[in-house]
């Protein structure tokens, strides 16, 4: 995959696992993995539930389906926050994705009858 390739390049460039990451960078990764990933999962669950009702599912069904999907994604994106070469990118993608999806779900919620 591309991340793995990027990781390898980073290792080759001498920025490998031998060098200890700074405390700040570690904190950025950990918070991204905990809060960023949870926000991302929240976004999926909220947006998915709205989309599900748009597609004609019963509300309870849509909520359950979207939450299950979000729970499947949650540990994966949480680990991805550690795998991504740049810690900031992890926060940007997870936090940005969360904000986007939550905003989209609000929008759908307001416009839908």
């Amino acid at each position: 995959m591309t991340e793995a390739k990027a990781q390898r390049q980073r290792t080759v460039a001498g920025n490998g696992p031998k060098r200890r990451p700074s405390r700040l960078r570690t904190a950025v990764r950990v918070t991204a993995a905990v809060f960023g990933a949870y926000g991302f999962a929240w976004g999926i669950a909220a947006f998915g539930a709205e989309l599900g009702t748009l597609a004609g599912m019963a509300p309870a069904e849509a909520v359950t389906a979207a939450s299950l999907l979000a729970l499947l994604v949650l540990p994966a994106v949480s680990l991805w926050a550690f795998a991504v070469p740049r810690a900031g990118v992890g926060w940007a993608v997870l936090g940005g994705g969360a904000v986007l999806m939550i905003a989209a779900s609000r929008l759908v919620g307001i416009t839908a009858p």
Binding site: A41, W42, G43, I44, A45, A46, G48, A49, E50, T53, P59, A62, V63, T64, A66, S67, L68, A70, L71, S105, G109
Partner: peptide
């Protein structure tokens, strides 16, 4: 999964 509506109440909040 059992307590999902409580710990991830996103869909419950939305709908």
């Amino acid at each position: 999964v059992i307590i999902l509506p409580i710990v991830l109440p996103a869909g419950v909040q939305a709908l």
